[in-house]
């Protein structure tokens, strides 16, 4: 929205956002699989603000070479590859059959990251919406805890192999981190997000 764009300012374009997300998890001690910035639609007193896709960085499961057989069915894999081919054609303009990058299996976490791009959350709802509304971190570790969460996104993440989901509020949005590993609350990470995603000030050097 115009208000969000104005608040973020020219220094905080999507490339800058990408650098922050990438820096956050590439330099972290923990092994995060992805990072997403959910961007707030801004303050509009006639309607609740909505958190939508701002940008994301998918790192993958670096410590887990693919040794475990995937549980996804052949039909599900074909569906995922078809969607990826279509998206690739949409982006590159090339014919899907010519693209060799889709041959490889689309992992559960890749798929979870991709479908995240279609999601949005009203302030107060869903994991990112709750973090935004309460202005408090939401940190869920463990498949058991994710599977019983009242938030659809937590349950969905668990289904796709995520074991830890964290939503950290910042100015103008929420930073979400996910991992296939068990990661317990880190004050260091919370503080880093506060510094890196404080849009009220100029972006700090990484």
């Amino acid at each position: 929205s115009a208000s969000t764009s104005a608040a973020i300012g020219s220094e905080w374009n999507q490339d800058t956002l990408q650098q922050r997300l990438q820096g956050l998890i590439d330099n972290a001690r923990e092994s995060w699989t992805y990072a997403i910035f959910w961007q707030s639609s801004g303050v509009d007193y006639t309607a609740p603000s909505v958190l939508g896709w701002g940008d994301g960085y998918y790192k993958g499961e670096v410590n887990k070479p693919k040794t475990v057989e995937s549980v996804t069915s052949l039909a599900e894999q074909e569906h995922r590859k078809k969607v990826l081919r279509e998206l690739n054609s949409l982006i590159s303009g090339s014919h899907s059959q010519e693209n060799e990058t889709i041959d490889e299996e689309v992992t559960d976490t890749e798929w979870f990251f991709l479908i995240s791009m279609t999601q949005s959350f009203v302030n107060g709802h869903g994991l990112p919406g709750q973090a935004m509304f309460s202005n408090q971190p939401v940190w869920i570790t463990g498949r058991d805890r994710l599977s019983v969460s009242h938030c659809e996104r937590a349950r969905q993440g668990q289904v796709f192999g995520i074991q830890t989901i964290v939503c950290l509020p910042s100015s103008n949005g929420v930073v979400e981190l996910g991992s296939t590993e068990l990661i317990f609350q880190s004050l260091d990470l919370i503080n880093q997000v506060k510094v890196l995603f404080n849009f009220g000030n100029s972006p700090p050097d990484l």
Partner: peptide
């Protein structure tokens, strides 16, 4: 049509995916 921010994110995701696959390829050196 996709919003620009998602197009950029998707392009990055697909490029990185290709890089990871090339790195895993037995022909990579």
């Amino acid at each position: 049509d996709l919003p620009l921010s998602r197009k950029k994110s998707l392009r990055r995701f697909l490029e990185k995916r290709k890089e990871r696959q090339v790195a895993k390829s037995p022909y990579a050196y």
